[in-house]
Amino acid sequence: MTVAFFSGKRRRAAATIGAVSAGLLVLSACEKPTPLATVTVGSESVNSEAACYNDGKPIKESLVQDCLNKDSGKTVKVALDDKIRFGVDPEIAENGWTLFIGGQPAEQEPYKKTYRSIPASAFFTSQTGETASKTKISIVETDGKKLIGIWLFTLEKK
C-alpha cells in the first residue's frame, strides 16, 4: 500500500516554492565578487575585497580620495623586524598595482607580479625618523594612469 505524503495542491506548491528558491539562488550567484588582495605577516594572513571597484573599469576621479580615506576594517599587527607580504589576484597583477601609504603613492611604476615582500620598518619610519603606531596601506590597481581598484589595510605596530 502506498501512502501519499502530500496532496496534489501541496506538491505543486512545494514544487513552485522550490523552483522560485532555486531561481533566486542562481541569480544571487551571478554577482561577481571583486578580486582579493592579501597581507601576510608570519603565519597571519588577512585578505579583503576591494573597498572601491568598478568591475575592472577606472574609478571616477571624484571618488578616489573618498575611497583612499575610508576606514579599513582589516588590521594586521606587525613588529618592525617582520617582513610584510602583499599578494593580489592575477587579474590585478595583469594591469599592475602599487602601494599607497596614508593615501599617497609610495611608488612610481605599477608592479606586475602577484606577490612581493617589504620590511615592516619601511611603513613605520617617517622622513623625520619618528615611528608611528599605525599606518594605513592601500593596494591600488592601476593601468598607469587611472585607478581601477582600491584595497585597504591598516598595519599596527606590536
Rank of each mutant, 00 (worst) to 15 (best):
T38V: 08
R11S: 13
S28Q: 11
F123R: 14
T114V: 09
A106Q: 13
T98Q: 15
W97N: 04
E130K: 15
T38F: 14
K112C: 01
V64P: 05
C30F: 14
K83N: 13
I17Q: 14
E94W: 01
S62N: 10
I118K: 11
G129V: 00
A37E: 00
E94V: 00
P110K: 06
R11Y: 09
V20S: 10
F6L: 11
A22S: 09
I137Q: 03
L27C: 11
N54H: 10
Q108E: 13
V88P: 06
G149Y: 01
G102F: 02
L152K: 09
A14K: 09
L36A: 07
V20R: 13
T128Y: 10
K9Q: 12
S126M: 07
V64W: 04
T128P: 05
I139P: 02
K158F: 09
C67I: 00
G96W: 00
A14R: 14
P90K: 14
I137C: 06
T40I: 00
S138C: 07
L80M: 12
V64G: 06
L63P: 07
A29S: 15
G56P: 09
K77N: 15
P119T: 02
I92Y: 02
A51F: 10
T142P: 14
K158W: 07
F6V: 00
L24H: 04
A106S: 15
A13T: 11
E49F: 06
T135M: 12
I118T: 06
S43H: 12
V78T: 04
I101Q: 15
T142Y: 12
G8S: 14
I84N: 04
A19R: 12
T114G: 06
S121G: 08
W151N: 00
F124M: 04
A106K: 14
C52Y: 00
L152Y: 02
D66G: 12
C67E: 01
D55Q: 15
K158G: 09
S126V: 02
T98L: 15
V78N: 04
V20D: 08
I92N: 02
E91W: 08
K134L: 06
S21Y: 10
K136S: 08
R11Q: 15
